[in-house]
C-alpha cells in the first residue's frame, strides 16, 4: 500500500481494517494478519511511528507511518470464541479507516 491516509486515530477510536489483499496483486510483505482484514476494532493506543515494513522488505525508501495497538473482540473474529476475550494487534495507519 503506497498511498498514505494521514488520519490520526486516538485511543478509543472505532476503526475498520481495510479489506485489501495486496499479496494478490504481486510480491508483497504484509504485517496485517488475514484474520483482521475487514474487521472492526478499537484503538487501544498509538504506539509511535515506524518505517513501513512493506517498503523495507523490498529495500525501497520507506515511509514513516503511525502504528496502532488495535483491540478486537474475539467474538467478532471467531464464532466459537468466549465472550469478553480479545485479540490485540499492531496495525499501521494506512490499513485503518474510521468505522
Amino acid at each position: 500500500m503506497s498511498e498514505f491516509a494521514p488520519t490520526v486515530f486516538p485511543a478509543g477510536a472505532r476503526v475498520r481494517v481495510r479489506l485489501d489483499w495486496p499479496e494478490q496483486r504481486g510480491p508483497a510483505h504484509i504485517r496485517t494478519p488475514h484474520y483482521v482484514r475487514g474487521r472492526e476494532g478499537t484503538v487501544l493506543r498509538p504506539l509511535g511511528r515506524f518505517a513501513n515494513p512493506e517498503d523495507l522488505a523490498f529495500a525501497r525508501e520507506a515511509a514513516i507511518l503511525p502504528l496502532y495497538h488495535v483491540r478486537f473482540e474475539q467474538r467478532a473474529l471467531w464464532p466459537e470464541a468466549t465472550e469478553g476475550d480479545e485479540v490485540v494487534v499492531e496495525i499501521f495507519g494506512p490499513w485503518l479507516e474510521t468505522a
Binding site: R31, P33, G48, P53, G84, V87, V88, V89, E90, I91
Partner: peptide, 12 residues
C-alpha cells in the same frame, strides 16, 4: 478472567 491475546505483528 478475560484473555487478551497479543499478536506481535510489527515493531514492538
Amino acid at each position: 478472567t478475560r484473555i487478551r491475546v497479543v499478536d506481535s505483528t510489527a515493531d514492538y
